[in-house]
Design a protein around this nucleic acid. Structure first.
Lengths: 207, 207, 207, 207
DNA sequence: AATGAATGAGACTTCATTCAT
DNA sequence: TATGAATGAAGTCTCATTCAT
């Protein structure tokens, strides 16, 4: 067997592994969104992804391993999206842009949004996921802080804002709004909520 | 046996039953806050309440029955508190009073607050609890709407507010703030958050 | 309180007890016929009879006690009916009369017949009921033997019949016929079966 | 890995599974005959078959699933035996041959016979087993009908027999005889009963 | 790499039984 | 006498996990 052939084979195996892992995680996200963390079994994930019942255990080692990987993937995905959302320089425009983006992506990917909310609920009592989720929160709050500080710097916002508390409140409002919408989708118009939130923010932050 | 005697006897049995049910529910709330819904067993609840392992099943019929009862109790408790919180007439003062009360009670009763958040997380995938929780949300939003409308009527608030969307946002912020605080208590100063929230609200709603 | 009053009261209590016991047993028979021995609970019996859930345990001491009492009542009831059925003197007429009566009473009281069959099935592995049921079988076989012997004596039947084996067969046929009919009532016309059985018996026994 | 290797691997797994299932069912039959349907647990079956306590649930899904499989296996086994029993052409000889065979096989395999009787008892109140057992009855009756009709055709039997009722009676007698024998084995000589039954049949059917 | 057979712990649930009223 | 509250044992069923193929 030539070296090239070995390389090709190896790459092929690695690719297959990566593809399988991705499909397993996507299936897991969908199932977690649909049923909740504890009502999803490893076997469910394998079958839903089109593989065998045993594969998830083979890949992730244990259910805990799957959950941790899941949390990282969801958190990472959101982080990446958060970073590529806005071209505006730090400041008020960028801040409201992130807010819009957050609520719009929940509408575009309700399954991912729901899976994240489910993890957040479980993270209250589950050490496996608490840490990555707390880190996500911290990172998100930090991003809002940065933009609030820039807005103040630029004179777009009042100087007497409690930047950190305000950042926490902005993230809180986003999460709480999506949560209410997921719990009773028919009763909440997320687009109107988004517009009202942006308007309120501008008013309350305005210099 | 006289009628009075029969009544006494019956009341005594009924009292025993009621006391047992209350103790079981209190134990259940504490355990759910501590471990999460799925990591609490009926047997745990019985033992934590000082009864037998089988009693919760005997009373609530099933774990689902316990959860539903739990949800009703928590929701009802919060509803009652919401109603007795404020003596102000409907309007901006009362609105901010409710906001303060909500965040202060989370600090005073973190166990109950956490149990409610756990239920809210599970309600996303659990038809049994979704309904009472959605009803709680609807009721809370309605309360904020009422006060917003009164504030506008009185001239305390701008007339161009989207009352319903704003009410949803206020509840969202409260829930999201408590959620972040519960996930990483050391990182959030809920009192500062409360004050910043009230200040922001006053500014964004002001006429 | 006068002696007469005490007597009256005592009689009244005894009567009440007997009536309650009878109602409990009737309810038990109906439930056993409907669900089978193991799927009936003491509480079911109490409620079906219009009493409390605890009364059957109070009266019969245990489920085993209820079952034994039930078996005795059913067996006794059938024995009494068997004795009062026929006015014919022992012989072929009386024999076929019993056969007719047996199949006709199954149609008239399908619930009692089914309860007896259920007990017979359970008696195969249940020491509690095996003995009374085996005794019932022995008594029934004996009755057929007596009539077969009388028929031979009178010259109504062949002398070379194996009386005991034939008696066993007659009881077997009756039980088996009712059993088939109970299992699939729509597929068996018990009246036709009865007539064919009587005709066959007359032919096979004829001198 | 070659296709052959895959096949071997698969077959090997399938063989393990089939062997385990067969051993579980055999253990279940023995236990049901010994204790009755309700006094056998899934764990009992697993252990008696030399496997784990959980395997029966894994294979049959539920106790109901086990019972249904059991009923099918017992019914199927008897049907097969019924078909291979007799080389005689349809007619009286074959009919009496089946009767002899039935009673003789009960003596040779009392465990299987008892398990079938237990199921028949439970079938009265258990929709899961009623259907296969009613089908077995229907099939058995049909076989007797066929042979009775052939016997009449050949002139071996009277033409005025109610063929269907007579077929029901024959099956009834067989079942009832085995039932009495199982309830009190010491009191019934099944061989004598068999001979008397065959003699009676010949007489009552004779042209 | 991938499958799926097998294990065993633990949850829910049902009930016979006991006991206080 | 009668009720029903409370217990605790046992059974069914689900799954994470291990292991043979």
């Amino acid at each position: 067997m030539s070296v090239a052939a070995v390389k090709t084979e190896r790459r092929s195996q690695a690719e297959r592994r990566e593809e399988a892992e991705t499909r397993l995680l996507q299936a897991a996200i969908a199932l977690v969104a649909e049923r909740g963390l504890e009502r999803v079994t490893l076997a469910d994930v394998g079958e839903a992804a089109g593989y065998s019942r045993g594969l998830p255990a083979h890949y992730f080692g244990s259910k805990a391993g799957l959950i941790v990987t899941l949390a990282q993937r969801l958190v990472g995905g959101f982080g990446q999206a958060l970073e590529r959302v806005e071209r505006h320089p730090p400041g008020l425009e960028r801040l409201t842009g992130i807010v819009r983006f957050y609520l719009d992506s929940a509408r575009k990917d309700p399954v991912g949004a729901k899976a994240l909310l489910v993890l957040l609920g479980d993270g209250l009592n589950n050490d496996l996921v608490r840490e990555p989720l707390a880190a996500l929160n911290a990172r998100s709050v930090k991003a809002f802080e940065t933009n609030l500080a820039a807005a103040i710097e630029k004179g777009e916002a009042r100087a007497d804002i409690d930047v950190r508390a305000q950042a926490i409140l902005i993230l809180a409002t986003l999460r709480g709004a999506v949560s209410q919408w997921q719990l009773a989708p028919g009763r909440i118009d997320l687009a109107r909520v988004r517009d009202e939130m942006v308007a309120s923010l501008k008013r309350s932050l305005a210099a």
